[in-house]
Measured scan of single mutants.
Amino acid sequence: KKYKIKVYVKDKKTKKWKKIKEIEVDTKEEALEAIKKLPPNYEVKIVP
């Protein structure tokens, strides 16, 4: 079972969220580790 991490950042001009990358991992633990490495201003969604 794979997890997709969708990473969004808020556009300063439009104030809208835009997706900047998608990370695919195998476990939820890996997903949480990957999220920890991202800057705090990123919004993250984990999709099972």
Rank of each mutant, 00 (worst) to 15 (best):
E43V: 15
L38C: 05
N41V: 10
A34C: 10
A34V: 15
E43C: 15
P40L: 09
V7W: 04
Y8E: 00
K18C: 06
E29T: 07
K19C: 12
P40A: 11
V7Q: 00
K28H: 13
K28A: 09
K6E: 15
A31G: 04
V9F: 07
K15N: 12
K18T: 12
K4P: 00
T14R: 09
K10Q: 13
V44A: 13
I23D: 02
V25K: 03
K2H: 12
W17L: 07
K18A: 04
V9L: 10
I35G: 02
K45C: 14
I5T: 00
Y8R: 00
I35Y: 02
K45N: 06
T14E: 04
V47A: 05
K12S: 10
I5F: 05
K4N: 06
K36N: 09
K36A: 14
Y3P: 00
I46L: 10
I20H: 03
V25H: 03
K6T: 13
I5M: 04
K19H: 04
A31N: 00
L38S: 02
N41Q: 10
I35D: 00
V25D: 00
D11A: 05
I5S: 00
Y3L: 07
L38I: 11
V7R: 00
A34Y: 15
D26W: 11
K1M: 13
K15Y: 02
K2Q: 07
N41L: 10
K4Q: 06
K15S: 08
D26T: 08
K18V: 13
K10H: 09
I5N: 00
D11C: 06
K28Y: 15
P48H: 13
P40E: 07
I5Y: 05
V9K: 15
K2C: 07
N41M: 13
K10M: 14
K18I: 14
K13F: 09
P39T: 06
K1I: 14
K15D: 09
K18W: 08
K15P: 03
T27K: 02
E29K: 08
K37C: 07
P39L: 12
K4R: 12
K13I: 12
E24L: 13
K13W: 07
I35A: 08
L38E: 02
K15H: 12
E22W: 02
K21T: 14
E22V: 08
K28L: 15
K6R: 09
K15Q: 11
P48M: 13
K2L: 11
E24Q: 09
K18F: 08
K37T: 10
V44I: 11
P39V: 06
K16D: 03
V9N: 04
P48G: 09
K1P: 14
K1R: 10
Y42L: 11
I5P: 00
A34P: 00
K18H: 10
K21N: 13
T27C: 04
L38G: 01
K10V: 10
Y42D: 02
K10D: 01
L38R: 01
K19Q: 12
Y42G: 03
K21E: 12
K45W: 14
I46T: 03
D11Y: 05
I5Q: 00
E22C: 07
Y8L: 03
K1T: 12
Y8G: 01
P40S: 12
Y42P: 02
I35L: 10
L32E: 11
K21D: 12
K21I: 15
K10E: 06
T14C: 04
K16R: 10
K1D: 07
K13C: 10
